[in-house]
Design a protein around this nucleic acid. Structure first.
Length: 832
DNA sequence: GCAAGGTC
């Protein structure tokens, strides 16, 4: 007679074999996978571990192309189950052929039953020997032997409940994810997938709801009146009974009545005993929370560590919802074991000195016992057995929590003083730990004493100081990972094993992120949740999971047929899909905007600021037909600004245009361009932003002339934008001097030619054509244009003087406005 | 490329 057993994983198989085989176990290889051979009760045993699920669902291949299949089609398609781990299929069949009896020995829960059925399905393809089920909640010798001595029938309903979950989750997740992703991609170019799922989405929903509350919060002022009293025994603080006073006048009134107070009277003193019970036994969530809070270990690492402790036989199964010890739990022998371990000895002995009364929670999910130690172990033993740095710490937490559950409540003495100062009531209180009880073994909860000096009733105390302090109410705090876990657990989001994964999924999708222990929502996550809560509110709330869970539970309980549950679930998903579709526009436009904004923000080269019209991002857009500044909100927002056609663009992030609030662009070498305003010299704010050095008064108005330079051209312009411009030599280094022309008052220039052997002396000269000194200069450099120099040249800054020295006298004349001059400057470069 | 659930 050969019995073949399948465990959920290799380590569990090894542990089972070691227990049943009593150490005499042969490790063998089946199709390259480890299995264990031993004799038990005169029979041949072969135990192999699987690897969790070895099968999975997916849609048939022809539905795989997102672009060709309408997502809603998926709702009417039956997903197919296929083997994901072929090597296990081969090994299962190999062993099944040798078996006279098969025992499913996966973890005792819904998924474990389902995993067992995966093996059963594959085995039944090659054999028809009986298949039974061994149920155990801990890999302890006692539990395991009991389970294998009295196996039961496999629970078909339990396995099918998991099956229904798999199919419904896939249908919903795939259809919704594709719909949202494809809809958003119609508006924003992104490769990212926007995923939706019955666990990940409500998880993000919790973070979203908290963020909304934070954003909606308005701080309110409040006042608090406190006093420092001095008694014979020492000083202590008291608070006016009004507490937090939200009315400023009221606080001031009270404070006024207290003015000049020197003495207070202890009207009444009460001393009360208060008890604090030990915490409830550990279920998974409570364990993850405490590991995070007390040991600073992330949920993922904590769960993995507990898993290893379980597999090594130190602690019980780590995935449990139950926080209530079974009635027949053998506390005594376990505590005896701890009494032999130095570290825990005193606590164990004190527990054994009286009848054991465990602290219990209310939840008995009939799955596994609360997480507890299986045996007492020393730190060193843990560390050498498990290769995780925090393993010993985690074990210690579990061990101490277990012992704490068996210890008496902690007793505090709470003293309350009721004082009176000029008829005004004050309160003061203190707490002293009288009997540590369970706190003795549980150093993680540090309850500090708040001491009060000894004060008698009717005693008079001095008032040393009175204060009326103004404070502000503070907004709700961001969620911590531990709080998020609590919410997920409370609402049944994910299993105790997968909750950490759902948090990770949201981070991976860019929906929220971790900052230390707190979680912050990101824009994509916020707008997605906002869109979903407007169209399919149930998705953002935990309800979605509970609806599906309720259906599945009915299958598990045998109250509903598997097919009926699938149909009902699909109808539910179809309804939600219809709502999603009906609100497609509202749902996607904000997300698309955010995605585009984020992409634009990332694109440092082109990002220049925020659009004043819609709040999205302004960035430089380059197209075949040219370039301009555009808004990512396009096409909903059509805000745009022209840019010069040529010239290298650089974003000067340090220079913000005060008018538009966007960064100033540098065009070419020396030329600034403020978005929405154009060239900076055209903007009336330019003086403030870039006060120019002026040459002298404008001959046409009361403005002043200043040098405008850019890569290919330079000229003098008027600060008042009257349109008057004035040419300057086009080449050579031009320096504005501190000396002024005695005739016209313009500042003198000095020119240093580029080339050698210049005919132009490096003299100081006046440039003003309307000045006799200036005329002399222009005559000298350009005798033929002498007469023109006397005319008004406002019309043609770009053409310049046409001097020989400049060598650029051939440009087309341009219209008189400065902005035109710019475009000429640009096009010239283009022609190069 | 999509979910959630196992496990490594």
């Amino acid at each position: 007679m050969t019995v073949v057993a399948f465990a959920e994983k290799n380590k569990a198989a090894a542990q089972i074999a070691s227990i049943l085989g009593d150490g005499e176990v042969d490790k063998i290889s089946v199709e390259g996978l480890p299995a264990y051979e031993f004799k038990w009760k005169g029979e041949e045993w072969l135990v192999m571990g699987l690897s969790g699920h070895i099968m999975s669902y997916d849609f048939p291949e022809k539905y795989n192309k997102w672009s060709e299949v309408d997502p809603s089609t998926l709702l009417g398609v039956d997903p197919e189950k296929f083997v994901t781990r072929k090597e296990y299929e081969a090994a299962i069949k190999n062993l099944a052929k040798r078996a006279d009896k098969i025992i499913l020995a996966c973890d005792y829960d819904r998924e474990g039953e389902n995993i067992g059925f995966e093996a059963k399905t594959l085995a039944e393809e090659v054999t028809n020997v009986p298949v039974a089920r061994a149920r155990f909640s801990a890999l302890s010798p006692k539990e395991v032997r009991k389970a294998f001595e009295s196996p039961v029938d496999p629970d078909h309903n339990l396995a099918m409940a998991a099956e229904a979950r798999q199919i419904l989750d896939l249908k919903m997740g795939a259809a919704f994810t594709r719909f949202v992703t494809l809809s958003v991609r119609e508006k924003a170019r992104t490769k990212d997938v926007l995923s939706i799922g019955p666990c990940q989405t409500p998880t993000c929903g919790f973070v979203y709801e908290r963020e909304k509350a934070i954003r909606a919060f308005e701080a309110k002022d409040f006042w608090k009146i406190t006093a420092i009293f001095a008694a014979k025994g020492g000083e202590f603080e008291g608070t006016h009974r009004a507490g937090n006073i939200h009315d400023k006048e009221k606080a001031a009134e009270i404070f006024k009545r207290l003015k000049g107070a020197k003495e207070g009277l202890v009207v009444k003193k009460t001393v009360k005993e208060a008890k604090t019970s030990p915490p409830n036994p550990l279920n998974t969530t409570e364990f993850l929370k405490r590991a995070s809070k007390f040991l600073g270990i992330s949920p993922e690492v904590a769960l993995e560590t507990a898993e290893q402790l379980y597999l090594a036989g130190f602690t019980s199964y780590p995935r449990t919802e139950t926080n209530k010890y079974a009635d027949d739990f053998d506390f005594k022998s376990l505590v005896f074991d701890f009494a032999r371990q130095k570290e825990y000895k005193p606590f164990a002995e004190s527990i054994l000195s009286a009848p054991i009364v465990p602290k219990n929670g209310e939840k008995d999910a009939h799955d596994h016992p609360p997480i507890h130690p299986i045996r007492a172990a020393a730190r060193g033993e843990i560390s050498s057995a498990i290769n995780i740095p925090q393993a010993a710490e985690v074990y210690d937490l579990i061990a101490r929590h277990f012992l704490a559950n068996l210890m008496p409540a902690a007793v505090f003495e709470k003293t309350h003083l009721h004082l009176q100062v000029q008829e005004e009531p004050f309160d003061s209180s203190g707490t002293v730990l009288k009997d540590a009880g369970w706190l003795e073994v549980y150093p993680f909860e540090n309850k500090k004493d708040k001491l009060l000096p000894f004060v008698e009733e009717k005693e008079k105390v001095d008032v040393k100081k009175l204060s009326n302090t103004k404070s502000k109410t503070s907004p709700p705090k961001k969620l911590t990972e531990a709080e998020l876990l609590t919410l997920m657990d409370k609402h049944g989001i994910g299993t105790k094993a997968t909750a950490p994964t759902h948090i990770e999924t949201n981070k991976k999708r860019g929906y929220f992120e971790n900052k230390g222990k707190t979680i912050s929502i990101l824009d994509t996550g916020f707008t997605l949740m906002e869109g979903l809560s407007l169209s399919v509110p149930i998705l953002v709330r935990p309800d979605i999971r509970s609806k599906i869970e309720a259906l599945i539970q009915e299958v598990e309980d045998g109250k509903k047929e598997f097919e009926a549950a699938l149909d009902e679930g699909t109808v539910l998903i179809k309804e939600m899909y219809a709502q999603l579709e009906a609100n497609k526009k509202e749902l996607t436009s904000n997300i698309a905007g955010t995605i585009k904004d984020e992409a634009a923000l990332e694109d440092k080269k082109n990002y220049i600021g925020t659009c004043k019209a819609c709040g999205h991002v302004l960035r430089i857009v380059q197209t075949d037909s040219g370039r301009f500044v555009g808004c990512t909100g396009y096409p909903d927002c059509r805000n745009s600004f022209p840019l010069p056609k040529t010239g290298a663009l650089t974003v000067l992030r340090s220079k913000e245009c005060k008018k538009e609030g966007a960064a100033v662009l540098k065009v070419g070498n020396k030329y600034n361009w403020a978005v929405g305003v154009g060239p900076c010299f055209k903007c009336e704010l330019e003086k403030e932003c870039y006060p120019p050095e002026t040459v002298g008064p404008c001959p046409e108005c009361d403005g002043r002339m200043f040098l405008i330079s850019f890569k290919d051209n330079r000229f003098l312009g008027c600060t008042k934008r009257c349109g008057y411009t004035h040419s300057v030599p086009k080449t050579g280094k031009l320096t504005l001097l501190d000396k002024t022309c005695e005739i016209c008052g313009w500042k003198l220039f000095r020119l240093k030619e580029d080339g050698e052997g210049s005919e132009i002396p490096e003299d100081d000269f006046c440039l003003n054509r309307r000045c006799t000194e200036g005329i002399k200069y222009w005559k000298k450099v350009s005798p033929r244009n002498e007469s023109r120099a006397q005319r008004k040249v406002s019309a043609d800054p770009a053409t310049g003087s046409g001097t020989k020295s400049a060598g650029r006298g051939t440009e087309k004349p341009a219209a008189g406005r400065v902005s035109k001059a710019v475009s000429v400057a640009g096009s010239r470069k283009e022609s190069k």
